[in-house]
Design a protein around this nucleic acid. Structure first.
Length: 880
RNA sequence: GGGUGUGUAGCUCAGGUGGUUAGAGCGUUACGUUGACAUCGUAAAGGUCACAAGUUCGAGUCUUGUCACACCCACCA
């Protein structure tokens, strides 16, 4: 017997353990069931579960549980990401509390500390995923820096290097001076700000009063200027091309060059060129073979290439001083406000400087083209489809991918240098050493490159590295390419695009057949969750308070493809109430001895009411299937919600009460069995969404040979009975329509249900007549005029007639009823007016399709008669 | 500057291929229930479907334009 309430705090853990003990999450590559595989977007190993994970993983869990019930051999491949930058920052902060920096420890000791921290906190997020109910195959848990995955990273790197796809280059990169590392374009966040534009004069060499005015937002960088560019079509400067200008303060001569980069329309038409500190200038510098003067150190401070008085300064400190000097020299022209964007580090929040260093790059042209084609030609499908446009846009403008990071936590680049700087790129130090020996013909010592790889390099391999690549495992064979990737659209470039490129390169095959993007989770007001707003909602708190089922459902009912999801207490509470409702429905079936009969055959039932329910079960299960297959999780979960609450609890259980308590024992017996059967089907349909409570009810409502999650999805389309469905739907429509009267009359549900007891008649006319009698009793009428065929029309008639009856029965306030009738009449009259106008419109009558016209005519007649009835009722009221 | 969305009840959202009194949940109000319901049930109020023009017998739905908001990308001497 079910307890009074479902104690989610206690039961969810027990149920989860049971699933694990019975190994229900395990994949079975040896089985001949068809494969279904999802790789989890790996959360940061040191992270905690946030709402984004809760949504992402709930969606995946729904799919996995559903597919298992559909007879698939499901592998939900779990694991975590080493998250280079994020993790290093966390550990450095911890060290800072102890008063030490990573440099005090040295690289080796620091990395040890990170491993310690990983081992200590890495299990946390996994346990949190379990609390959510995630049915991952935990026996296969991987980590992007475990031995196998590290080997995969080295292998790919070496292969790409040898294929010429990875190369080292001295280029401008985005430099994070706090982390002391390069970051990729995607890791730079542009923020808008109102800056200033300063104009200053550069004297032309050999003249005393000739100047070129340049405009700049960063005057302090002029120490690194190596040219001034003008357009060769610009009359103002045409003659100066080839001459030099003298940089103020440092008195260095730099050439005036002609370059397309200079736009006569913009600024003064003359651009100072600082190749080492600006991406455009860098390109100009390369075109003209200009010197590249780096004026910053790795901490972003002015270095020895500027006059001593400015050395060691931060650019923003130096700026006013430089400007003051220029003013002193009489070369300052003016300043004006200038809206601009300033680049900040995604993780550190410091200003990102373009910085000239040696870095490793992936040449993305070829692999990017293949990744683009795979989506263009439909090999990989995207949901929602418009995400393809975003993907295309980025893929068509791919830049070289800077994969090296000057961090300590990550995959160290498998590159060794000879004494002369010769590169040996091999998977192991031994191999590199062997190659070096061979090359030099003698024993030499090698030094290893200190860079580590961008985290996304290893996550780019995730789809196949987790399955065992480069080993030819049965997992790789059976589950690759994976079925679908479910992730947020915020990492489409970071991760999805990189996985596409890396997988197509390494495997010569797509990593997944479909990608399903979901939106962001926001707070109840639709605002982005952020630490600064302090509006974050902790999924674990929600689980503790309302249960994992309620949280999942609250997320799922909104999870259409691509849409944002709002979450908050009231939403989760709603679905906790839903869970309680189902719990109580199950309790109700037990109290009424609705026991599962293993021999029950849904095709053999006799009562239309039972046939109706079985039909609805079949159709609902089918509709949920379709929605899930299309990743319409919101439709699927809403369907099961409304079916369980509305169709099953509100209607079926209410309507069967008099049958269960009635004298027809055969009908009662059939109804009990049908109820028990239907509850089982509902539990199955609900299980992917609310796995815990359904499993608990399942276990407590009968002797079960297997757990709910191991059962199969209900497929009963062959039990659909359209006739019974139509009958009962019709009656429900009628009953619904008299609800307003019922309130006043206080009709108990059992009378409502009696209407339906009589529905054993299969013929609609009989059905109507029998209910006519009941309706007339209900309304204490001697007769009831009820002739219409169409359900909607009938509803209107009944409404009018019962209204007529009520005052006679002395059940309601006459004045109030009169007012209500007038209102109703007004509504109908205005509707009728519209219909009359339309039907007398020649254009409508001649052009509209016949069925529409017929329909309108009928409506017109019905409405007219309804108005008459109301008038009649009103008159009778007046007589009282 | 380029792109992608969104705008329907107080709030959050549904509303295939145009078809007629525009729906749900939450919230509000009223009444009822505590014999499945840490609640539930029944109902009421609440909407010129952002705005404008167009196509059409008929537009929330299609076209164009305008406005507002959100996000993404790029540029910014």
């Amino acid at each position: 017997m079910l307890e009074k309430n479902f104690n989610h705090q206690e039961k969810e853990k027990q149920i989860y353990q049971k699933w694990e003990q019975m190994e229900l999450f395990k994949a079975h590559p040896e089985s001949n069931k068809p494969p279904f595989c999802i790789v989890i977007p790996p959360p940061n190993v040191t992270g905690v579960l946030h709402m984004g994970h809760a949504l992402d993983d709930s969606l995946q869990d729904v799919l996995c549980r559903y597919k298992r019930m559909q007879g698939f051999d499901v592998l939900w491949q779990p694991g975590t990401d080493h998250a280079g930058i994020a993790t290093q920052i966390v550990v450095e902060k911890m060290l800072a509390k102890e008063g030490i920096s990573r440099h005090d420890l040295g690289r080796e000791k620091f990395v040890e500390r990170v491993w310690e921290w990983k081992n200590q906190s890495g299990g946390q997020i996994i346990n949190q995923l379990k609390a959510l109910g995630a049915s991952c195959d935990w026996s296969r848990e991987r980590f992007t820096m475990d031995e196998g995955l590290s080997a995969a990273v080295r292998k790919i790197f070496v292969k790409m290097y040898k294929d010429g796809l990875i190369y080292k280059d001295k280029r401008l990169v985005n430099w994070d001076s706090k982390l002391q590392t390069a970051v990729s374009d995607l890791e730079v966040i542009q923020k808008e700000a109102i800056g200033k534009m300063w104009y200053m004069n550069y004297p032309v060499e050999g003249t005393t009063n000739q100047f070129i005015t340049v405009a700049t937002t960063r005057p302090e960088t002029f120490f690194g200027d190596t040219a001034v560019a003008v357009s060769d079509k610009d009359e103002r400067y045409k003659d100066l091309i080839g001459k030099n200008v003298i940089l103020p303060i440092i008195n260095r001569a730099i050439p005036i060059i002609a370059d397309e980069h200079a736009d006569p329309e913009k600024g003064t038409g003359a651009v100072k060129i600082t190749p080492a500190h600006d991406f455009n200038d860098f390109e100009v510098g390369k075109r003209h073979h200009l010197e590249m003067i780096n004026i910053l150190d790795t901490y972003g401070r002015l270095n020895e290439n500027v006059p001593e008085e400015f050395q060691g300064m931060d650019p923003l400190t130096a700026r006013p001083l430089v400007l003051a000097k220029i003013k002193e020299l009489g070369l300052y022209v003016k300043e004006e406000d200038n809206p601009m964007t300033i680049p900040y580090g995604e993780r550190t929040g410091v200003i990102i400087e373009p910085y000239l260093t040696d870095q490793w790059f992936v040449d993305t042209r070829e692999i990017g083209r293949k990744a683009l084609e795979a989506v263009e030609n439909g090999s990989v499908k995207m949901y929602p489809e418009n995400m393809k446009n975003t993907y295309y846009e980025w893929m068509r403008n791919l830049q070289p991918w800077c994969i090296s990071r000057q961090l300590w936590w990550g995959h160290q680049v498998p590159v060794w240098y000879g004494p002369d700087g010769k590169i040996f790129c091999e998977e192991t130090e031994e191999e590199a050493y062997a190659k070096a020996q061979e090359f030099y013909g003698k024993d030499i010592s090698l030094t290893r490159d200190t860079d580590v790889l961008d985290t996304w390099f290893s996550s780019g391999l995730w789809a196949f590295s987790t399955l065992g690549w480069p080993e030819e495992t049965i997992y790789l064979k059976k589950y690759y390419p994976t079925s679908v990737l479910i992730t947020g659209f915020d990492i489409i470039f970071f991760w999805v695009a990189r996985m596409m490129m890396m997988s197509l390169y390494a495997m010569k095959e797509i990593p997944f057949k479909e990608v399903c993007f979901h939106g962001l989770v926001r707070d109840e007001k639709g605002q982005k969750m952020s630490k600064s707003k302090n509006n974050g909602i902790d999924p674990l708190v929600m689980i503790e308070k309302y249960g994992a089922d309620a949280l999942r459902m609250a997320l799922l009912v909104q999870a259409g493809t691509g849409r944002d999801v709002l979450i908050g207490d009231s939403r989760v509470e709603t679905y906790r109430n839903f869970a309680t409702k189902i719990w109580n429905a199950a309790k109700f079936t037990q109290l009424n001895n609705c026991v599962v009969d293993p021999a029950f055959n849904p095709k053999s039932v006799q009562l239309p009411l039972n046939k109706w329910l079985i039909s609805k079960v079949a159709k609902t299960a089918d509709s949920i299937s379709k929605s899930i297959e299309e990743y319409q999780f919101n439709d699927a979960s809403n369907t099961v919600y409304h079916f369980a609450w509305g169709t099953f609890c509100d209607w079926y259980l209410e309507l069967t009460k008099p049958i269960l308590n009635g004298s027809d024992t055969r009908a009662a017996d059939e109804t009990r069995k049908t109820t028990a059967w239907a509850l089982d089907q509902i539990l199955k349909m609900m299980h992917p969404f609310m796995p815990f409570i359904t499993e608990e009810i399942w276990a407590n409502t009968a002797e079960r040979s297997e757990m709910l999650m191991a059962t199969s999805w209900p497929k009963y389309m062959d039990c659909v009975d359209e006739v019974a469905e139509k009958q009962i739907d019709f009656l429900i429509g009628m009953i619904s329509s008299i609800r307003s009267v019922r309130v006043e009359m206080n009709v108990p549900p059992s009378i409502k249900a009696q209407l339906l007891i009589k529905d054993a008649q299969e013929n609609e006319a009989d059905l109507i007549r029998s209910n006519q009698i009941l309706l007339s009793q209900l309304a204490r009428l001697e007769s009831i005029d009820f002739v219409n065929e169409s359900p909607k029309g009938s509803v209107q008639k009944i409404f009018g007639t019962i209204t007529l009856a009520l005052p006679l029965a002395g059940l309601i306030d006459v004045a109030a009823e009169k007012e209500r009738l007038m209102k109703e009449r007004e509504k109908l009259a205005s509707y009728l007016k519209g219909l009359d106008a339309k039907l007398s419109n020649e254009a409508f009558v001649s052009k509209a399709p016949a069925n529409i016209i017929a329909d309108q005519r009928q409506k017109q007649a019905e409405t007219r008669s309804s108005i008459e009835k109301i008038d009649e009722a009103y008159n009778r009221l007046a007589d009282l």
